[in-house]
Amino acid sequence: MADQLTEEQIAEFKEAFSLFDKDGDGTITTKELGTVMRSLGQNPTEAELQDMINEVDADGNGTIDFPEFLTMMARKMKDTDSEEEIREAFRVFDKDGNGYISAAELRHVMTNLGEKLTDEEVDEMIREADIDGDGQVNYEEFVQMMTAK
C-alpha cells in the first residue's frame, strides 16, 4: 500500500514521523504519540494510545517504525480525509473560533508540534493556502489545501 505514495508524500511523512519521534530513535512510543496528540489539544487515554499503536504495529514490538507509519498514512489517505476530520483539524488551528486561521494561530500550532518556523515560513504557508488574498485561511481554503492532490 505504501508503494502507491509519491516521493514527495514519503518525504512529508518522514518529516511528520520525526515530529512524533521525539528522541530520534526511529520508533514512536505511546508516550511520544501522547505528547504530540496533547500538543494538538487531544486528550487520549493510555489505552487509546496503545490501541492506536497496536493498529499499525505490524511486528508487534509495541512501537511504530517508519515503514509501519507509512502504511498507516497510506491507509488513512485511501479513506481520504472525511469532512469531519478536516473540520476537526481546522478547529485545532482556529484557536479563537472566528472561522479563520491567522498567521499567529498557525505559528502557535506548529510551535506546539515542535516545528520552529520563521515568520517568513509561516507567512508563506498562509499565502499558499490563501486563495482570496485576505491574509488568513478560511474553512473553504483549508479544505482545498487539505484535499489538493
Rank of each mutant, 00 (worst) to 15 (best):
M1V: 10
M1A: 07
M1C: 07
A2T: 12
A2D: 14
D3M: 07
D3Q: 15
Q4I: 08
L5I: 03
L5K: 10
T6M: 14
T6H: 05
E7R: 09
E7I: 15
E7T: 02
E8C: 08
E8K: 07
Q9P: 05
I10K: 00
I10M: 07
I10A: 00
A11C: 09
A11L: 08
E12D: 13
E12W: 07
F13L: 12
K14M: 06
E15K: 08
E15S: 14
E15Y: 09
E15I: 15
F17H: 08
S18H: 03
L19C: 05
L19R: 04
L19F: 03
F20Y: 15
F20C: 13
F20R: 15
K22A: 14
K22D: 03
K22W: 01
D23K: 15
D23T: 00
D23L: 00
D23I: 02
D25F: 15
D25V: 10
G26I: 15
G26Q: 06
G26E: 03
I28R: 13
I28V: 10
T29N: 01
T30K: 01
T30N: 03
K31R: 12
K31D: 02
K31P: 01
K31W: 10
E32G: 13
E32L: 06
E32W: 09
L33I: 10
G34W: 02
G34M: 07
G34D: 02
T35K: 01
V36A: 12
V36D: 10
V36I: 12
M37I: 12
M37S: 03
R38S: 08
R38T: 13
R38D: 00
S39F: 00
S39T: 11
S39P: 13
L40R: 07
L40I: 15
G41C: 09
G41E: 15
G41K: 04
Q42R: 13
Q42H: 13
Q42P: 08
N43G: 06
P44I: 05
P44T: 13
P44N: 07
E46V: 11
E48T: 00
Q50K: 13
Q50E: 12
D51W: 01
M52K: 07
I53W: 05
I53T: 13
N54P: 08
N54F: 03
N54R: 05
E55P: 15
E55Y: 07
E55R: 14
V56C: 04
V56I: 05
V56Q: 12
V56N: 03
D57H: 08
D57W: 14
D57Y: 11
A58T: 13
D59V: 09
D59R: 10
D59P: 07
G60N: 14
G60Q: 06
N61G: 07
G62Q: 15
G62A: 15
G62I: 08
T63P: 13
T63H: 03
T63G: 11
I64V: 14
D65V: 13
D65T: 15
D65L: 06
F66R: 05
P67Q: 10
P67E: 07
P67C: 02
E68R: 00
E68M: 07
L70R: 14
T71D: 01
M72R: 08
M72I: 11
M72D: 08
M72K: 05
M73D: 09
M73F: 15
M73A: 13
A74V: 12
A74Y: 15
R75M: 14
R75C: 02
K76G: 01
M77W: 09
K78W: 01
D79Y: 11
D79S: 04
D79N: 10
D79P: 09
T80M: 13
T80D: 07
T80I: 15
D81E: 15
D81F: 06
D81V: 14
S82W: 07
S82P: 05
S82E: 07
S82F: 02
S82V: 09
E83N: 00
E83D: 07
E83Q: 03
E83G: 12
E84K: 09
E84I: 15
E84M: 01
E85F: 02
E85C: 08
E85M: 15
I86K: 05
I86S: 07
R87G: 05
R87S: 07
E88R: 02
E88P: 09
E88Q: 11
F90H: 08
F90Y: 12
F90V: 01
R91Q: 10
R91E: 06
V92A: 12
V92N: 06
V92M: 09
F93Q: 07
F93G: 06
F93R: 04
F93C: 03
D94L: 10
K95Q: 13
K95W: 09
K95V: 03
G97L: 00
G97V: 08
G99Y: 10
G99K: 15
G99L: 01
G99H: 05
Y100T: 02
Y100F: 09
I101N: 01
I101G: 02
I101R: 00
I101H: 06
I101D: 11
I101W: 01
S102Q: 09
S102I: 06
A103E: 00
A104F: 01
A104P: 13
E105I: 08
E105Y: 06
E105C: 07
E105M: 07
L106M: 03
L106C: 03
L106Y: 06
L106T: 03
H108I: 13
H108Q: 12
H108L: 12
H108N: 13
V109C: 09
M110K: 06
M110C: 04
M110R: 02
T111S: 08
N112S: 13
N112A: 03
L113T: 00
L113F: 12
L113A: 02
L113N: 02
G114E: 04
G114M: 07
G114I: 07
G114H: 10
G114V: 05
G114K: 03
E115M: 14
E115S: 05
T118S: 11
T118C: 00
E120R: 01
E120A: 15
E120S: 14
E121Y: 10
V122I: 11
V122H: 06
D123T: 02
D123G: 13
D123M: 07
E124R: 11
M125C: 04
M125Q: 04
M125K: 01
M125V: 12
M125Y: 04
M125R: 04
I126N: 08
R127Q: 07
R127A: 01
A129W: 04
A129C: 02
D130A: 03
D130Q: 04
I131T: 13
D132G: 13
G133D: 06
G133K: 09
G133E: 12
D134Y: 03
D134W: 04
G135A: 12
Q136W: 01
Q136D: 04
V137A: 12
V137I: 12
V137Y: 03
V137Q: 04
E140L: 02
E140Y: 12
E140G: 12
E140A: 12
E141H: 06
E141G: 12
E141V: 08
F142K: 08
V143N: 03
V143A: 12
Q144K: 07
M145F: 12
M145Q: 14
M145H: 08
M146I: 10
M146Y: 08
M146D: 07
M146N: 01
T147V: 15
T147N: 14
T147W: 07
A148G: 08
A148I: 06
A148Q: 15
K149Q: 05
K149E: 11
K149F: 07
